[in-house]
Simulated scan of single mutants.
Amino acid sequence: MKIAFDGKRFFNNSSGLGNYSRDLVRVLATHFPAHEYLLLNKSKTAKGESILSLTNVDFIPTSKGNLSRQLKMGKDAQNEDADVFHGLSGELPLKWNPKPIRKVVTIHDLIFLKFPKYYSFFDRKIHLWKFRQAAKQADRIIAISEQTKRDIIHYLKVPEHKINVVYQGCHAAFKSKKTDEERSVVKLKYSLPERFILNVGTIEERKNLLNVVKAITDSEIPLVVVGKKTKYIGRVQKYLIKNKMQQRVHFFEGVSMDELAAIYQLADIFVYPSVYEGFGIPVIEALFSGTAVITSNRTSLPEAGGPDSLYVDPYNVADLKAKVLFLWENKSERDRRTEKGLRYVTKFEDEKVAADLMGVYESLFNTQE
């Protein structure tokens, strides 16, 4: 089978959709090496070089011209004799030639519909149009969680039989235990506290960092935050200054995957009270890292966290505070939960993700639909 991918996110995005795209191609190419995988984009970048070095993965430059991704990429895949085209970020090309090709699209979330205040009117309209077009064209839709599947059915009016849930994995860096020396190097480089709680992700309103800060206000617990800043950081910093907490909350950006894995392993607790996630990859990263997790009891996060993470109402600071203090003060409870979390997270191992993805592709040729 020859499978073509929209490579825009693979080559251009450093995190989020970029990581999803690179991990997806990597696990497929590694665990199903008999197939051929094509990455289509205007140009290639240094991102994903190790994946492109695999003998069954090839870069295909798309035809030049305006709107080539929308109007030419699909035909380019057909001209390469691809059996399947997979749009990795909620979009599919708009134009195709008569040559048969199966179409798959991954939809990660519909946040712009559930929380419209985070998006401009124009962005909401564009996103909705693109997602509706992709859902209509696709032979199969991949949802990254049961929550996203429910949202697709509700908001896009897609029949359930057309949707497969395939969970994400995470970068291999989080699946290996760092040595004491490796952790010490990272701890020294970033001047990390002896003990701390950790939050990872873009610093934006939906991720709810301000409530994490509020939850530790009357304690001495240090907080390490790793993520890209947005204007929301201004609200957080204003609160830190008002409560004289600047020395206790540490912000970092541009951290490598290996360094981030070491930071997860150094942390006592990972705290992630996001109000909405399509899946919640940082929760999986924490579980693979052997770090106790506190996250929201909403949307897809219980799917990611499993039965032994602690769950909170993301809007209830008192609830969050109580659970942070409970785990902070109870090492045996942290250890118990991390041990069970490591067993739970095996469902997101590469082999399982690859098999589920390949199952979706193969189903397209085993049906009379």
Rank of each mutant, 00 (worst) to 15 (best):
H154F: 11
P314K: 11
V293G: 03
P273Y: 06
E220C: 04
L71G: 00
Y118A: 11
F326I: 11
F32N: 10
K178M: 10
F122S: 15
Y37D: 02
E194V: 07
S145Q: 09
G7W: 07
N208W: 11
V345M: 06
V312T: 00
V212G: 00
N19K: 04
L240T: 04
R248T: 02
I269M: 07
G65C: 14
V360W: 05
L210W: 03
L54V: 03
Q237E: 14
S256R: 11
I233E: 09
V27M: 07
L71C: 00
E259Q: 08
L38H: 13
K321V: 02
K114V: 12
V186M: 09
F251G: 12
K117L: 07
I141Q: 01
E80L: 11
S256T: 15
T295S: 14
T62Y: 05
S289M: 05
Q265S: 03
G290Q: 06
K44Y: 11
R124C: 06
E181Q: 15
F11D: 13
P307S: 15
H154S: 07
I294Q: 02
P302A: 12
V57T: 06
K228R: 15
D58T: 11
E204Y: 02
D139G: 06
E329P: 01
K242C: 01
E182S: 05
D151Y: 03
G169H: 06
H171G: 14
S14H: 07
Y239R: 03
S53A: 14
D6W: 05
A355E: 10
L40W: 06
Q147K: 10
I216S: 03
Q246N: 15
L110Q: 06
I111R: 04
P93A: 04
I284C: 00
V360K: 03
D6H: 06
Y167H: 14
N366C: 05
R124L: 04
S63G: 11
T45F: 08
T338Y: 15
S256L: 08
K8P: 06
V271F: 00
E277F: 09
R132N: 08
D313L: 01
P222W: 06
D308K: 08
L301H: 02
H35M: 10
L327N: 01
M245K: 14
G359C: 04
K207Q: 14
A34E: 15
H35I: 12
V312G: 00
F85N: 00
G341E: 08
P159M: 08
Q78V: 00
T179F: 07
L113K: 11
D218N: 10
F122A: 10
E80R: 14
A138C: 09
L39R: 10
A262M: 01
S274A: 15
S14I: 09
L209P: 12
Y119S: 02
S145A: 12
L310M: 14
V275S: 13
R248Y: 02
V275H: 11
L40E: 13
V312E: 00
V166G: 08
D350H: 12
L320D: 13
N211C: 08
D23C: 05
I241C: 01
I126W: 08
I107V: 12
Q137W: 01
S43M: 10
C170F: 05
K231R: 12
S274D: 15
N12C: 08
S68L: 03
V213R: 05
N66H: 09
D139C: 10
F196N: 00
K340Q: 05
Y119C: 10
E253H: 12
T30P: 09
D319I: 13
F174P: 09
L266Q: 06
T338Q: 13
K207T: 11
